[in-house]
Design a protein around this nucleic acid. Structure first.
Length: 826
DNA sequence: AGCACGCCGACT
DNA sequence: GTCGGCGTGCTC
């Protein structure tokens, strides 16, 4: 056939592959009606029907001319977005995550898009024109529904469930539909609405010809209030392009009827202005402080390294001023007209650091984290798409629709919260950032005082650049480390409950000098369990295989895995013994007992329980900054990125606990936590001290942290990893199967294991019971896959693991089985 | 995630 | 008999 055409033909895309905001395996294909073919494009959302009546906003990820075989595509109902909400690069990134982390595109869509962009319809029932004539004839449940409909105009399925007091509502609805008394209505819920304010401006000709205003004043000569309103407006207009109605009300003491009257006279015009929900930065901007010599050198080295490599690891001790270096790189990035992403562990975002950068970059920053509401997230999304220069975000910030992202900073690179555990996608933001950057031609800076073993290994082996900053900013010494031997003090009877005399005395001394104290204990609640010392009973959670933690403050027992709560047992239900005793200690107990030993100190606690409220975290930090708190007791929260001037003592109450996790990363975590929490001491003033309490002070990790000897820690730990075939030498994948019935789970695991070992026997370890074998009423079993790093088999293995999951679920009785695959389960 | 359909035990 | 709960399969 000739390639030219004699008649104009439709050149649009005729079929669209659409991702739906649902937990389903694959995308679906829809046809594109002619009227939408010009409008539709990659990355826009479309309104589509899925199933019998539901309507969703799906995302177009592919367009084609060919009709797919064996499908009868439904038509796209409309194109929702004027501009794409994503660029092709993002979808390419999603595809990579789906492959690498063995998850579905739908799961990524769920994680990536803010809720406000994931729309689905709600089914509503409304009365038909025949409704009135026939209600009289109805009886029973149909009558109840009809009666409610008479008063309410429309009912949701949930309403009907409530009216009938039962879950199944379809039989009743079908019967009413058949009798043609009702209609079903499906509408996409618009969850995001721009925020608007009412404004006032002059009507023409006054707006463009202010000299004519004389006439306006003449016209109003007898209406004094209106004259006042006009004068107020003219003053306000000098300061602000858009004058708000409310501002005029306030300034001229007038109300809406006056403005309406002036609108009729042709003077004012009222209009709605879309405004942002994201508060702008209002304070003065300041210059970043001078760079130190060390910082200048480090900056040079980083830039040198970026000329050859995409990734650079910045290893700088706590307080060396890494943030100042980020600022410089970000500034240069913004000056080139590019975008930068600053990734942080969630908890570090709500605080000091954001303010610090805002003082430099002002409104060039948007912040993206879990405390934003849905509308705010959509607005950040839109700002990023428009080219906002700097985004500070938690891990999900990676998914924002950047236009020209050229720099990603992963601060606190070692932090475990960069890895998402549940639900899928179980991705690591640091590793994903490196892929994304490579794809976009961007650079990645990993910053930390305690590099992860993987990153340091990669740097040592020249995969990443490596820049070291061994000194603190301003030549301040690293805080002095002191180990308090709990075993020895216990023997000498010098311990006061969980405090060594060394720690108590040091705290007392700090308080005398008006210095502040941070205490770290890695457990919340009062005591991790209550035990019977006769028969050994302790109270377990009804949903999980863990003991309940005693919370003194709220006077109950709680499960830290599912949130289950119960009363405090007064006696042992097994043997009737009334002398139950508390085992172990958490932050509540530390706080409580401090009040006894240091009664004059002002003590506050910072853990999951005290910072649940929206502002609680910020308030605690502020109070500590303002020195309204002397001693801050907390969990990991106190280790993350806090920067206080006046901390004289940091105490680690039980270093041994940190080493007890049943995980190959326990040592790494312990070293990082001790070093990080120690880094909170003496940041501005000299002479900060860190007191590490331990029963086993000789433990190599405690010794290495004590000597600030990262190198020795690294050498020892990397050898262990090598000899036990752990990362970075081997790749690890865990597969966890979950089911409510243990017998079904056992059978399913047997089959799954059988399928996997058929092909990959040498790499499979297990099945085994995980450390907590039952969580939230689900029984768990897992297998471990270990493969040499860079192994060609990695791809096929992951694919097979996914296929085996589908096959196992297809077995009799296994449809409720849940399979989670976790690649690099750090 | 819904929604339909089929199976099965509990009750009018 | 039939109502309602639950498991299973399918949706372009």
């Amino acid at each position: 056939l000739p390639s030219h055409s004699y008649h104009p033909t439709l050149t649009g895309h005729r079929f669209a592959t659409v991702l739906l905001p649902l937990a389903i395996q694959k995308p679906y294909t829809y046809s594109v009606p002619p009227e939408w073919q010009k409008e539709i494009s990659f990355g826009k959302r479309v309104e589509v029907q899925f199933g019998r009546n539901k309507i969703y906003a799906g995302l177009v990820i592919e367009l084609s001319e060919e009709k797919p075989e064996g499908l009868q595509p439904k038509p796209v109902l409309s194109v929702i977005d004027k501009d794409p909400i994503l660029h092709p690069a993002q979808i390419k990134f999603w595809h990579w995550i789906a492959r690498y982390y063995a998850c579905t595109m739908g799961e990524i869509m769920a994680a990536a898009l803010p809720a406000g962009l994931k729309l689905s319809s709600e089914t509503l029932i409304v009365p038909s024109p025949f409704f009135e004539d026939h209600i009289g004839l109805l009886k029973g449940k149909e009558f109840l529904v009809a009666e409610a409909l008479e008063n309410r105009e429309e009912l949701s399925l949930e309403d009907i469930q409530k009216i009938l007091g039962q879950k199944t509502v379809y039989p009743v609805i079908h019967s009413l539909l058949e009798k043609k008394l009702i209609f079903l209505k499906e509408e996409l819920k618009r969850s995001y609405k721009p925020k608007k304010v009412s404004c006032v401006r002059l009507q023409e000709p006054f707006r463009s010809q202010p000299e004519l205003l004389e006439e306006a004043f003449d016209m109003l000569s007898r209406a004094t209030r209106q004259v006042e309103a006009l004068m107020a407006f003219l003053q306000l207009e000098k300061k602000d392009k858009h004058v708000r109605k409310s501002a005029v009300y306030q300034k001229a003491q007038v109300n809406s009827s006056i403005l309406k009257a002036m609108e009729k006279k042709g003077i004012f015009e009222l209009y709605e202005l879309e405004i942002s929900r994201l508060g702008g930065y209002e304070d003065e901007l300041t210059e970043a402080p001078e760079l130190s010599e060390q910082q200048i050198r480090a900056l040079d080295e980083i830039k040198g390294c970026f000329s050859e490599k995409n990734v650079c690891l910045l290893h700088g001790v706590t307080g060396s001023g890494k943030t100042r270096i980020y600022m410089e790189l970000i500034r240069e990035c913004i000056e080139r007209g590019e975008q930068a992403l600053y990734l942080l562990p969630e908890i570090a975002l709500t605080t000091q650091l954001v303010n610090r950068l805002q003082r430099i970059f002002g409104d060039d920053i948007s912040v993206y984290h879990s405390r934003l509401n849905n509308s705010e997230r959509v607005e950040v999304w839109q700002e990023v798409a428009k080219g906002k220069p700097l985004i500070m975000g938690a891990r999900s910030g990676l998914f924002l629709p950047f236009k020209k992202l050229k720099l990603i900073i992963v601060d606190e690179e070692h932090d475990p919260s960069f890895k998402q555990y549940d639900p899928a996608p179980r991705y690591h933001a640091r590793d994903s950032a490196i892929y994304l950057a490579t794809q976009l031609g961007a650079k990645v800076l990993l910053g930390t005082a305690t590099p992860s073993l993987e990153s340091y290994y990669n740097a040592k082996h020249k995969k990443y650049g490596l820049v070291e900053m061994p000194e603190r900013f301003g030549g301040i010494d690293l805080p002095e480390m002191i180990i308090a031997d709990k075993r020895k003090e216990a023997k000498d009877r010098k311990m006061q409950s969980h405090f060594t005399s060394l720690l108590i005395e040091a705290m007392q001394e700090a308080l005398n000098k008006q210095e502040q104290v941070i205490l770290f204990q890695n457990r919340r609640g009062y005591a991790p369990s209550i035990n019977c010392n006769v028969c050994g009973w302790n109270q377990q959670c009804i949903n999980c295989d863990v003991s309940l933690t005693y919370h003194k403050h709220s006077q109950n027992m709680r499960c830290h895995y599912c949130g289950y709560q119960s009363a405090i047992p007064s006696e042992c239900p097994a043997c009737g013994n009334q002398a139950l005793h508390l085992q172990g200690f958490g932050t509540e107990k530390v706080e409580d007992e401090l009040k006894i030993y240091l009664p004059e100190a002002r003590i506050a606690r910072m853990d999951f329980d005290t910072v649940r409220g929206k502002q609680a975290y910020a308030k605690l930090i502020h109070d500590f900054e303002e020195r309204r708190i002397d001693i801050l007791v907390g969990t990991q929260m106190v280790t993350k990125g806090l920067d206080f001037d006046n901390v004289g003592i940091v105490g680690i109450l039980s270093a041994d606990h940190l080493l007890q996790f049943p995980d190959f990363r326990a040592s790494e975590r312990a070293f990082q936590l001790i070093t990080q929490v120690a880094g909170r001491a003496g940041r501005k003033n000299k002479g900060g001290k860190v007191i590490i309490q331990a029963f086993n002070p000789e433990h190599p990790v405690i010794q290495e942290a004590f000597h600030y000897n990262f190198q020795r820690f690294y050498r020892r730990e990397i050898m262990e990893r090598q000899s036990f075939h752990y990362p970075p030498f081997n790749r690890v994948i865990t597969v966890t199967l979950k089911h409510k019935k243990p017998e079904v789970l056992n059978r399913a695991m047997q089959y799954y294991h059988h399928l996997v070992t058929q092909n990959w026997k040498p790499y499979v370890i297990g099945p085994s019971l995980p450390p907590i074998p039952r969580i939230r009423t689900y029984y768990l079993l897992q297998i471990l896959i270990k493969l040499p790093a860079n192994n060609q088999l990695l791809g096929p293995v992951k694919k097979h693991l996914q296929e085996a999951a589908v096959k196992t679920r297809a077995e009799d009785g296994c449809s409720q089985l849940r399979v989670s695959i976790d690649v690099d389960p750090y």
